[in-house]
Design a protein around this nucleic acid. Structure first.
Lengths: 209, 209
DNA sequence: GTCTATATGACGATAGAC
DNA sequence: GTCTATCGTCATATAGAC
């Protein structure tokens, strides 16, 4: 195996273990064993355990960065935005986001560990990612407010409500209710429900207006 | 200091440190130093580090258990339920929950660490707590559906949406946006917004019906 | 009830042979 | 590029004096 291949293999193994047991909870010995090499090999490719962790976040943020946001390469969503199809917009955002969470559970777990452990790189990741999400969804809401389709409210609280539904649903499936005992529902069903609840919740024809 | 007092003090110190740095990330030496005693004292009161962790979860689940749920001792909420004041119900649930999160940030962090680390006791805590919440809020929604005030939908997805808003908001303030750069809002404002969005989102007069 | 001192093992990291 | 062997450190946990 070449150096780059081995490096990538160790990195993937580390992602898996860190995501399951946390940074402190994973030993370099375990990583080496799981990757089928000696511990010395791990330190040949990554000078310290911290370097290994940093390399993981960098790889995820940069390499996977091409599809980091739910709207990137999502034609259905972009079409819905262009056509001002409100349901289509929120449905496709939610579906793309939750599918992504489901596909990359290890990375989601890693991010939560990072958030709790307050790693620098993780903090930067969140700040950038979240503010982009608020800009995209909040921008769309603001536009639809100008059109008179959505009632007056701080777009950010609408975004927070909607993001909360998606994240919490994914979090439930990843962390607390993996067997989906409390609520078993496809991502499509959930996305449709979330989109409808949010849209009716913030549309102009508000009985309290 | 008596044995029980000392035990309680060590326990509180451990809660603080575990919540900030995780179980594996905290050493017994640190706990001892922070409590102002020798390491031997920690092991006098708790045979192992794991025992200390278990004692924390037990104490939280049992002692604080009297006010574990947002509706316990919440007269405003119970009155709103009795009067079928929908806004009052959801507003007071959200406000009580988010205030509780805000008051006990260490415990919230501890719970997240536990969820990630998949400790047995934490798993039980979540299962019991979450199912009670779904029973309470979901039960109210089902009742209001019979009254014709809320449209047909699985009450559980409505609960998930609403709980998602609250939890995600608290999570933001605790983990990612502590300085509240992205969205600075009092719990009262947030609760009012969440309640209104959910209620309009699930009420009978649905434009899509 | 509290301490100092220490046993025992695991951890991250390195040296040097092949 | 990969290994075995090992170093120094720090972790949990214990023994025994006061």
């Amino acid at each position: 195996m070449t150096g780059d291949e081995r490096r990538e293999q160790i990195l993937q193994t580390a992602v898996d273990l860190f995501s399951r047991k946390g940074f402190k909870g994973t030993t370099t010995k375990e990583i080496a064993a799981a990757a089928g090499v000696s511990e010395a090999m791990v330190f040949r490719h990554f000078a310290t355990k911290d370097d290994l962790y940093a390399a993981i976040l960098d790889a995820k943020a940069c390499i996977d960065g091409t599809h980091m946001f739910p709207w990137e390469g999502n034609d259905l969503l972009l079409k819905a935005v262009a056509e001002k199809d409100d349901f289509g917009v929120f449905y496709n955002i939610a579906l793309a986001a939750m599918n992504k969470h489901h596909e990359d559970v290890p990375f989601m777990r890693l991010l939560f560990y990072s958030a709790l452990e307050e790693h620098e790189l993780a903090e930067r990741f969140f700040q950038e990612f979240i503010s982009q999400v608020y800009k995209f969804i909040g921008g769309y809401i603001a536009e639809r407010q100008k059109d008179g389709a959505i009632r007056e409210l701080d777009p950010r609280i609408a975004v927070r409500s909607f993001v909360g539904m998606m994240i919490h649903h994914s979090l439930n499936n990843i962390l607390w209710d993996k067997k989906r005992v409390i609520l078993d529902m496809t991502n499509e069903e959930a996305a449709a429900n979330f989109a409808r609840i949010l849209l009716n919740g913030i549309r102009s024809q508000d009985v309290n207006n």
